[in-house]
Deep mutational scan, measured.
Amino acid sequence: TYYTVKSGDTLNKIAAQYGVSVANLRSWNGISGDLIFVGQKLIVKKG
Score class of each variant (00 low, 15 high):
8 G>K: 06
11 L>C: 04
5 V>L: 02
45 K>H: 15
15 A>L: 02
3 Y>D: 02
42 L>A: 01
30 G>S: 12
27 S>C: 14
18 Y>W: 14
8 G>E: 06
5 V>T: 05
1 T>I: 12
31 I>F: 08
40 Q>N: 05
15 A>R: 02
18 Y>N: 09
38 V>L: 09
47 G>Y: 13
19 G>S: 10
29 N>K: 00
21 S>M: 06
7 S>L: 13
33 G>Y: 07
3 Y>I: 09
43 I>E: 07
41 K>M: 15
31 I>H: 03
38 V>F: 06
37 F>T: 12
25 L>F: 02
13 K>F: 11
43 I>D: 04
40 Q>R: 04
40 Q>D: 08
44 V>M: 06
46 K>G: 15
24 N>G: 06
9 D>W: 01
32 S>I: 13
42 L>K: 00
9 D>Y: 01
22 V>R: 04
19 G>L: 09
16 A>Y: 10
47 G>F: 12
44 V>W: 03
44 V>I: 14
26 R>T: 08
35 L>F: 14
18 Y>G: 03
34 D>N: 10
8 G>L: 05
15 A>D: 01
15 A>M: 03
26 R>I: 15
29 N>E: 00
15 A>Y: 01
8 G>F: 06
41 K>N: 11
17 Q>K: 11
43 I>S: 05
28 W>N: 04
47 G>T: 11
31 I>Y: 03
26 R>V: 11
5 V>R: 00
41 K>I: 15
14 I>S: 00
31 I>T: 05
46 K>H: 15
14 I>Y: 01
18 Y>P: 00
45 K>E: 12
10 T>Q: 06
36 I>M: 06
31 I>V: 08
19 G>W: 06
38 V>M: 08
1 T>V: 14
34 D>F: 08
33 G>T: 09
4 T>F: 09
4 T>V: 14
3 Y>M: 05
45 K>Y: 15
11 L>Y: 03
17 Q>I: 14
23 A>I: 11
37 F>E: 11
39 G>Y: 03
25 L>Q: 00
26 R>F: 04
20 V>F: 03
3 Y>Q: 02
11 L>I: 10
18 Y>E: 07
36 I>K: 02
1 T>R: 08
13 K>A: 14
5 V>Y: 02
16 A>D: 13
23 A>S: 12
33 G>R: 06
2 Y>H: 12
46 K>N: 13
8 G>V: 03
11 L>S: 01
22 V>C: 06
17 Q>E: 14
4 T>R: 06
23 A>C: 13
39 G>K: 04
15 A>N: 01
5 V>H: 00
31 I>E: 03
44 V>S: 02
33 G>I: 06
19 G>R: 08
2 Y>L: 10
29 N>W: 01
15 A>G: 08
31 I>G: 03
20 V>Y: 03
21 S>Q: 07
45 K>D: 15
46 K>P: 15
10 T>H: 05
34 D>S: 09
2 Y>R: 07
1 T>P: 10
23 A>K: 10
14 I>P: 00
25 L>K: 00
31 I>S: 03
16 A>E: 12
14 I>C: 02
41 K>C: 08
4 T>Q: 09
2 Y>T: 10
11 L>W: 04
36 I>D: 02
35 L>Y: 15
13 K>T: 14
34 D>P: 05
25 L>M: 06
43 I>C: 07
2 Y>S: 08
11 L>T: 03
30 G>T: 09
34 D>Q: 08
30 G>P: 06
23 A>R: 07
12 N>R: 11
4 T>C: 08
26 R>A: 09
4 T>P: 03
38 V>P: 13
38 V>D: 08
36 I>Q: 02
22 V>G: 04
19 G>C: 10
1 T>L: 14
12 N>C: 06
11 L>V: 07
14 I>D: 00
20 V>A: 07
19 G>E: 11
33 G>L: 08
10 T>K: 05
18 Y>S: 07
43 I>A: 06
10 T>R: 04
7 S>N: 12
43 I>Q: 09
6 K>G: 09
46 K>T: 15
15 A>I: 02
28 W>L: 07
8 G>S: 06
29 N>L: 01
9 D>C: 02
19 G>P: 02
21 S>C: 06
4 T>H: 10
6 K>W: 03
21 S>Y: 04
6 K>N: 09
37 F>I: 12
24 N>M: 12
13 K>H: 10
44 V>L: 07
6 K>I: 14
46 K>W: 15
26 R>Q: 13
28 W>E: 04
14 I>F: 02
47 G>W: 10
1 T>Q: 13
32 S>F: 12
22 V>T: 10
3 Y>A: 05
4 T>K: 08
15 A>S: 12
30 G>E: 12
13 K>G: 13
36 I>Y: 04
17 Q>W: 13
45 K>V: 13
23 A>E: 13
47 G>Q: 13
12 N>G: 15
25 L>Y: 00
2 Y>Q: 09
10 T>C: 04
10 T>M: 05
43 I>N: 06
27 S>E: 15
37 F>M: 10
29 N>Y: 01
